[in-house]
Simulated assay, not measured.
Amino acid sequence: MATDLINPARIDFVTLRLFCAVAQTGSITKGAERCHLALSAASRRMSDFEAASKAMLMERTAQGVRLTPAGHVALQHAMRLFQGFELFSNELSEYSSGSRGHVRLWANMSALVEFLPTALAGFLKRYPETRVEVEEQLTGDIVRAVVEGVADVGIFVAGAPAHGLNVRPYQTDQLVVLCAQSHPLAEHDEIDFKNCLTHDFVGLNRGSSLLNAIATAAQEAGFPLRLRVQVRSFDAMCEMIAANLGVGVLPLGTCARKLKPWGLKAIRLRDAWARRELLIATSANRTLSTSAALLVEHLTRA
């Protein structure tokens, strides 16, 4: 019957802690001392606890108190409650300290390939209970996601509108022209981008900041961009370029390991726009969680 249930509002953790202390010491006086309570207050709490429990939990004797069978059952449940509360407190403490949490990080392809693997590995080694959910997205989508709260942290190329965001420098990447070793451009070590525009290009799909950058540079140079192949990843670009289907512009860090094995040549671009700054962004209107703030600090220092 519901009317026979103990009213939890009449029992608090101070009383439960006192009951456990009395049971362990066999004395209300010693239990009160352990819990830093006056004896009169402790006696009143034990009486109220028994009244709320609707059972006699302790037998008072000249030697102290001893638990009744009902008291032993009450002690077992009280200990479980304290263990649960301790776990609850410890886990919340881990979240507040940042050692446990969930962070949603959206980054462009360049950051994801060049810089984040090592940086995230270091962060997760230090905070193994933190889950970092990483998505590769286009710059415009990253900005919107951080502003709208879909992502906690964003990383993208400087130059995108950043209204509603707090931004800070993250890394810089150097763009190069990538071609097959047999391509006519392979004789160069450095080149101006306009001198590449008589050749076919392999590029990323529309909407990428990198494609927009080279399209703008081609327009400013007064040449059309001869985009022959469009793909979705840097690896696919390298495959197409290695097959001599065109040249491409990529961050050096995304293709450096593939140069010799794939028969590719990276040619440094002299153009100022070819050195790009990556930014870390967070919302200017939301407070970061401790875990997200720790991640931003780690990435900035890395």
Score class of each variant (00 low, 15 high):
residue 141 D to K: 03
residue 155 I to H: 09
residue 142 I to L: 01
residue 154 G to Q: 01
residue 135 E to A: 14
residue 113 V to I: 14
residue 149 G to F: 06
residue 119 A to H: 14
residue 100 R to L: 13
residue 95 Y to A: 04
residue 122 G to L: 00
residue 91 E to F: 13
residue 127 Y to M: 08
residue 152 D to K: 06
residue 156 F to G: 11
residue 123 F to H: 04
residue 154 G to L: 00
residue 123 F to T: 00
residue 103 V to T: 09
residue 100 R to H: 11
residue 152 D to E: 14
residue 136 E to I: 15
residue 121 A to W: 15
residue 99 S to P: 01
residue 143 V to I: 01
residue 103 V to L: 09
residue 136 E to T: 10
residue 150 V to F: 10
residue 90 N to S: 08
residue 118 T to E: 10
residue 103 V to C: 07
residue 105 L to A: 02
residue 101 G to A: 15
residue 146 V to C: 01
residue 137 Q to W: 02
residue 149 G to V: 10
residue 142 I to Y: 06
residue 104 R to V: 13
residue 110 S to F: 07
residue 104 R to T: 09
residue 119 A to F: 14
residue 132 V to W: 14
residue 112 L to E: 14
residue 95 Y to I: 12
residue 98 G to P: 01
residue 150 V to I: 14
residue 102 H to P: 04
residue 98 G to F: 04
residue 99 S to M: 03
residue 122 G to Y: 08
residue 110 S to V: 10
residue 154 G to A: 12
residue 143 V to K: 00
residue 91 E to K: 10
residue 125 K to A: 15
residue 118 T to L: 12
residue 129 E to G: 15
residue 120 L to H: 09
residue 147 V to N: 00
residue 112 L to D: 13
residue 139 T to H: 01
residue 138 L to E: 00
residue 125 K to L: 08
residue 150 V to P: 02
residue 103 V to N: 03
residue 137 Q to N: 01
residue 89 S to F: 11
residue 135 E to L: 12
residue 102 H to T: 08
residue 113 V to E: 11
residue 110 S to W: 08
residue 151 A to Y: 08
residue 99 S to G: 06
residue 91 E to D: 13
residue 143 V to P: 04
residue 90 N to I: 11
residue 90 N to L: 07
residue 90 N to H: 15
residue 150 V to D: 10
residue 147 V to S: 04
residue 141 D to E: 05
residue 122 G to A: 14
residue 152 D to A: 05
residue 101 G to Q: 10
residue 111 A to D: 12
residue 117 P to S: 04
residue 146 V to E: 02
residue 93 S to L: 12
residue 130 T to Y: 05
residue 99 S to V: 05
residue 114 E to M: 00
residue 151 A to T: 07
residue 118 T to P: 02
residue 99 S to W: 03
residue 116 L to T: 03
residue 156 F to I: 05
residue 129 E to C: 05
residue 111 A to I: 03
residue 109 M to F: 08
residue 138 L to G: 08
residue 140 G to V: 12
residue 126 R to H: 10
residue 125 K to D: 15
residue 90 N to K: 04
residue 102 H to F: 05
residue 153 V to C: 11
residue 119 A to R: 13
residue 103 V to M: 07
residue 145 A to H: 07
residue 120 L to Y: 11
residue 157 V to M: 13
residue 130 T to A: 02
residue 148 E to T: 11
residue 107 A to E: 10
residue 153 V to M: 12
residue 110 S to Q: 10
residue 139 T to E: 05
residue 104 R to Y: 06
residue 93 S to C: 06
residue 132 V to S: 14
residue 133 E to P: 01
residue 116 L to R: 06
residue 148 E to Q: 03
residue 143 V to D: 00
residue 136 E to R: 03
residue 95 Y to E: 05
residue 152 D to V: 02
residue 102 H to C: 02
